[in-house]
Design a protein around this nucleic acid. Structure first.
Lengths: 211, 211
DNA sequence: TAATTGACGGGGATAAATCCCCTTTTTTAA
DNA sequence: TTAAAAAAGGGGATTTATCCCCGTCAATTA
């Protein structure tokens, strides 16, 4: 019996195309092609033809890959998720894996790799590329000396990513300018920054502030 | 005789998949699948089996879509380019069209639209979706009061998105700090900014500096 | 209970950024 | 070729930003 696959990707052309690719594998069949997580869940609820494995994009409107994977891990733990995305951001990849994805493929992988990955996830339970393995290892290492920002500090950083002066920021936060000064100093210290520009760049790189 | 298509996309899985999709159209055949502009140009130079139309991704390493399209418009003006990307950024779309692309498809279009677009580009010479038409119209309107940044100003902005002081920036640019001061002033004026933080945010929003 | 820690705030100094007005030199264009 | 515009640079003043050292108060912990 053929192994059953669902493809979830908001880009119609791509989901169609990827489904076509999977159909070329003689041991696989495509049971669903969905635009987002919501559509997939609707399919699972209404049909008995459940996939054994889901090829899931990460960036989707309505119901994203991370959200959907979390849902599947809880409600349908027998269905494996294999993430398939152009997103190379380490944090996103980690989130996806923590949500329960059994592997993470970049869209520039070879067709044969996709075939291997599908088979491995079903037989061994997982498929990690070298890149992903490294990211997992690094995340273990770095989880120790992780920099923790306090709530009030994050609040300040967001305001610092603005044309406001520190005095104005202090007003908005109902604090003395001197206290705000303390936050700035503490952040410069622990993040190793030289000036406000550095803080703004840090905030953007770490998704604290999205421009 | 079948119409000849080349697919250019750095994501192997996607270019393969899209090529598969095009092969499903009985009136089209795929003569080349390339990872980037350089590969396409190599193909054009080495083979006589030239495509009539190129399905081109925008974001590619080594030789990007815009660069490649510019090259093709000059050297192989008979080959039409149809852009195919997830990039919805107006400026990118405009750049692609100005470079000579005959149309711009987002990757979430239907298979039938792709077929139509391929045919239209070959018969009529262009294919514009509603979205793209609007962008073109708006660009005409806004082209009047467009803010133009000079080369030296852009150079300065990039350095301002750094922890360097203006004095240091002046050294790097081989200018007097006062001249750099002039650039800053001029930019604050024409971009309506209050301080350096604003300049950094402007640079990031407008892809002058990519963090 | 005494010591410690963390959040909040202050004084005062220096460096950087911002602003306004001005001169010289080079480029551009009428 | 000459007037105009743009680019480069300067003087000097004010405001922000940055830095360092200090004190208070409350909560936590040894």
């Amino acid at each position: 019996m053929k192994k059953k696959v669902a493809v979830v990707d908001d880009h119609t052309l791509l989901s169609e195309a990827i489904a076509g690719l999977v159909r070329q594998f003689p041991d696989f069949e495509v049971v669903a092609v969905c635009k987002n997580g919501q559509e997939l869940i609707n399919h699972l609820k209404s049909s008995l033809n459940h996939p054994q494995i889901v090829l899931m994009d990460v960036n989707m409107p309505i119901m994203g890959g991370i959200e959907t994977t979390t849902y599947l891990s809880e409600k349908y733990p027998t269905i494996k998720v294999l993430a398939l995305s152009v997103e190379e951001n380490e944090k996103i990849i980690l989130k996806m894996l923590r949500a329960g994805a059994k592997g993470y493929l970049l869209k520039d992988t070879e067709k044969s790799i996709l075939h291997n990955a599908l088979n491995d996830v079903l037989s061994k339970g997982f498929y990690y590329t070298n890149t992903v393995s490294k990211i997992l290892l690094d995340s273990e290492k770095n989880s120790q000396n992780e920099i923790v920002l306090k709530g009030r500090e994050v609040e300040f950083i967001k305001l610092a990513c603005t044309e406001m002066t520190y005095r104005e920021i202090a007003e908005v936060m109902f604090l003395s300018p001197k206290t705000v000064e303390g936050y700035r100093e503490a952040l410069f210290q622990k993040l190793n920054l030289k000036n406000r520009t550095g803080l703004v760049l840090y905030a953007i790189k770490n998704d604290i502030f999205i421009p």
